[in-house]
């Protein structure tokens, strides 16, 4: 018998609470696989703040901190400064990172903190029930933008990767997607690179991952995959925005 599938040691056996069709599970697995492949799982400390991934401490098979809403980059700063030889990552959603935690992420990048941020952008607040996020698209309906997001009163969706790429301390910035297999493969590569940047001591790295929220978007899982492709990618272009060479 040949082995076709094996769960990664980077994750625990705990069954996840994520909604059907949500791509958080895929992203968790990619992070777990990368930590194992890089051989750093045993020295990794993750930080997951409030949001859909608040229970990530149950899923990752490494030391974990749950953190206050938006504050993961500050918590990670405290850990990494004291344990510079360990691997530290934050796992944050878009409401968390781009709204309430905007100051923390900008200044962690600004100081060039040597940790890695996995930024899951699904254009909505999932955990609290589908409210508008800074990343919600124009016209997109959310429970707090019931008539569709209006640029005149709520501004344009925030492009986090582009913004952080303007900061010298951000060594690695890349936007990827997990709505199809090719995208998932590229996402894993980007995550691996971002952790490698940390292992090389080159400074702050962030991977922004476009992700689905069928429940929050009011769509079936399949619909949500194509909605991501047709609506999010045109506004949030995929690609690398910064590499360590540029960071110099």
């Amino acid at each position: 018998m040949s082995l076709l599938f094996e769960p990664t040691k980077g994750m625990t056996d705990k069954s996840m609470h994520y909604c059907p069709g949500c791509t958080h599970g895929i992203i968790h697995r990619l992070v777990g696989e990368v930590l194992v492949e890089l051989g750093v799982l045993g020295k990794t400390i993750g930080v997951a703040p409030v949001g859909c991934a608040v229970l990530a401490y149950d899923y990752f098979n490494c030391d974990m901190h749950e953190a206050a809403h938006g504050r993961a980059p500050a918590v990670a700063t405290g850990i990494k400064r004291m344990l510079p030889d360990n691997v530290v990552f934050t796992y944050q959603g878009d409401g968390d990172l781009a709204s309430i935690g905007a100051a923390e992420i900008i200044h962690a990048a600004h100081r060039g903190e040597n940790f890695t941020t996995i930024f899951v952008n699904n254009a909505i607040y999932g955990m609290t029930g589908g409210q508008m996020a800074p990343t919600t698209l124009i016209g997109q309906k959310a429970t707090t933008s019931p008539y569709g997001r209006d640029k005149a009163t709520t501004g344009m969706p925030l492009k986090v990767s582009e913004m952080l790429a303007t900061i010298d301390g951000a060594a690695f910035v890349e936007r990827v997607t997990v709505h199809n297999v090719a995208g998932i493969r590229k996402t894993k590569k980007a995550i691996k690179k971002a952790f490698q940047v940390q292992l090389d001591g080159k400074g702050f790295g962030i991977v922004e991952i476009l992700s689905t929220c069928p429940t929050g978007w009011g769509q079936t899982p399949v619909e949500s995959l194509s909605w991501l492709e047709n609506n999010m990618i045109p506004y949030y272009p995929l690609g690398n925005f910064r590499t360590p060479e540029e960071a110099k």
Binding site: I45, R71, A74, V75, G78, I79, R81, M82, R111
Partner: peptide
């Protein structure tokens, strides 16, 4: 030791949370 000037009091106390969780006197 380590000194960090945080971007705010909010960030500072959360850095405390991180370092304390990692087992240090902070």
């Amino acid at each position: 030791g380590v000194f960090v000037q945080a971007e705010s009091e909010v960030a500072a106390i959360n850095m405390v949370y991180g370092a304390a969780g990692a087992g240090f006197r902070v």
